[in-house]
Amino acid sequence: MDLGIRALPVIYRHRFGAMIKAALRASSLSTYNRYFPEGDSPQYRYYTFNVAFPKNRRTECDIKIDDQFIIHECVYMVDEKPVSLYISSPDHEFLIHLYDGFRTMERFPFSTDTGMTVNGERLELIVRDISIVRRDLQIQDDVITIQTHSPVVLESETGSKPLIPDIEDIDFFNKVSLSEYSEAFGNSCAHRLASYSGVEPSRPFELAPLKVKKSVVKHTLGSFRKETGKPLMMITGLSGTFTIKGDPKDLSVLMDMGVGVRTVQGFGMVEPAAG
Rank of each mutant, 00 (worst) to 15 (best):
D2M: 05
P9F: 10
K21W: 01
L24P: 01
L29W: 08
N33V: 07
R34C: 00
Y35F: 09
F36N: 13
G39I: 15
D40F: 13
S41K: 15
Y46N: 05
F53K: 01
R57N: 10
C61Q: 08
D62F: 13
I63R: 03
D67T: 15
D67C: 10
I70E: 11
H72F: 13
C74Y: 09
M77S: 10
E80S: 14
K81Y: 11
S84Y: 07
S88I: 07
P90E: 09
F94L: 15
L95Y: 02
Y99W: 11
D100Q: 12
F102D: 03
R103F: 13
F110V: 08
E121P: 00
E124G: 06
I126W: 02
V127F: 05
V127A: 08
I130L: 12
S131D: 12
D136Y: 06
Q140D: 10
T148V: 12
H149A: 05
T158W: 11
K161G: 09
D171S: 15
L178H: 03
S179W: 05
E183C: 04
G186C: 01
C189E: 10
Y196E: 05
S197I: 07
S197E: 03
S197Y: 04
G198C: 03
G198E: 05
E200M: 10
S202E: 15
E206F: 12
E206Q: 12
L210A: 07
K214N: 09
V216K: 14
T220I: 01
G222K: 11
R225D: 07
G229Q: 08
P231W: 13
S239R: 10
F242S: 00
M255Y: 08
M257Y: 01
G260P: 03
V270W: 07
E271A: 13
